[in-house]
């Protein structure tokens, strides 16, 4: 997280980026139709979850 902060990202932005990245690695293993839906869900869940 500190690496992201040092590059100007706030807590919410940093968390979103890292969690999304982590999930992307996992979603890459899933069939396409699940992946799209899961990605959309993820974006909703993360909004406003910090701070």
């Amino acid at each position: 997280m500190f690496y992201c902060f040092q590059r100007g990202l706030g807590e919410e932005e940093a968390l979103k980026l890292i969690v999304n990245g982590f999930c992307k690695e996992i979603l890459a293993e899933l069939p396409m139709e699940f992946a799209v839906e899961a990605k959309e869900l993820l974006a909703i869940e993360l909004e406003g979850s910090v701070g």
């Binding site: 590059r7 100007g8 990202l9 980026l17 890292i18 999304n20 990245g21």
Partner: peptide, 14 residues
């Protein structure tokens, strides 16, 4: 290292 976070995305935000 930030797995799954593309350089492009990271740089765009930053």
């Amino acid at each position: 290292e930030l797995p799954g976070v593309s350089m492009n995305n990271f740089l765009k935000e930053s």
